[in-house]
Computed example of a mutant assay.
Amino acid sequence: MPWDESPCPYCGGRVINVSNAVIYNGHTFGNGRCYLCVNCRASCGVHGNPATRRPLGVLATPEMKFFKQSCHKKFDSVWRNNKLSRNQCYKQLAKLMGICPKCCHFGWFNQPDLELANAILSDESWYKR
């Protein structure tokens, strides 16, 4: 569901579909579009090139974005260094988090999920457990 049909889940503000240059200091990334809460500035990118209106995940607050970046840095280093495939990494993380592998995606995690994932990924041997 496009976010611009719902209020922001954090502050109730209006969510609009805009150029992502508004959150990246005038520079666009990816397909150049995102959803943005005009009040609290939570945001989320969109799928596609050209851009669609389908969100990449949930709206993320600045704190959530910090955790997503931290998680991805730790997670991506495992599959990029051929320790496991990317799919195997998601399956292992899902197992350790106690969630369904199909639900295991940083873009769809809420704050508690991100904190748990970050704690798990902080163990350098998380993928071996």
Rank of each mutant, 00 (worst) to 15 (best):
E115R: 01
V46T: 14
C103V: 04
S77I: 08
C100K: 14
L59V: 14
S6F: 07
C71A: 14
G48L: 01
P62S: 01
N39M: 09
R14D: 12
F106M: 00
A21K: 12
K73W: 07
R33Q: 09
F67E: 01
G57W: 00
F106V: 10
N25H: 03
R41G: 08
K102E: 06
S85L: 10
T28N: 05
H72N: 03
W3K: 12
R41C: 04
Y90T: 01
G107Q: 13
P7M: 09
N49D: 02
L93W: 00
L84R: 12
Q69D: 05
Q111G: 11
G26D: 10
H72L: 00
E115V: 09
Q111P: 05
G26I: 09
Y127T: 07
V46H: 00
E124T: 09
P50G: 13
P55S: 06
N17E: 05
C103Q: 13
I120E: 12
I23K: 04
K68F: 01
K91Y: 09
Q92N: 13
S125C: 14
Y10F: 15
C11V: 08
L114E: 04
S77P: 13
L36R: 15
N82D: 12
N87D: 09
R41F: 11
Q88H: 13
Y10Q: 11
Q111V: 12
K74H: 10
K65C: 05
N25F: 04
G30R: 00
K68G: 05
P2F: 06
H105L: 07
W108R: 08
I23C: 04
A94T: 12
R14I: 14
R80W: 01
L56I: 02
S122Y: 06
E5Y: 05
G26C: 09
P62E: 02
R54C: 07
G98T: 02
R41K: 15
D4L: 04
L121R: 10
R41N: 10
P9C: 06
C71K: 07
E5N: 05
P62A: 01
R41V: 08
S70A: 03
Q92I: 15
G30M: 05
C37E: 15
N49L: 02
A60T: 03
E115I: 12
C11L: 07
A21T: 07
S85W: 10
E63R: 00
K102T: 04
F67N: 03
D123G: 06
M1P: 10
I16F: 05
H105I: 03
A94I: 11
C8Y: 12
A21D: 08
D113C: 02
T28A: 05
K65D: 08
A119I: 08
C8P: 13
A60M: 07
C71E: 10
N17S: 10
V58P: 03
E63T: 00
R129H: 15
Q88E: 14
S125K: 15
L114M: 15
S122M: 09
V22T: 12
H72Y: 04
G107E: 14
G13V: 13
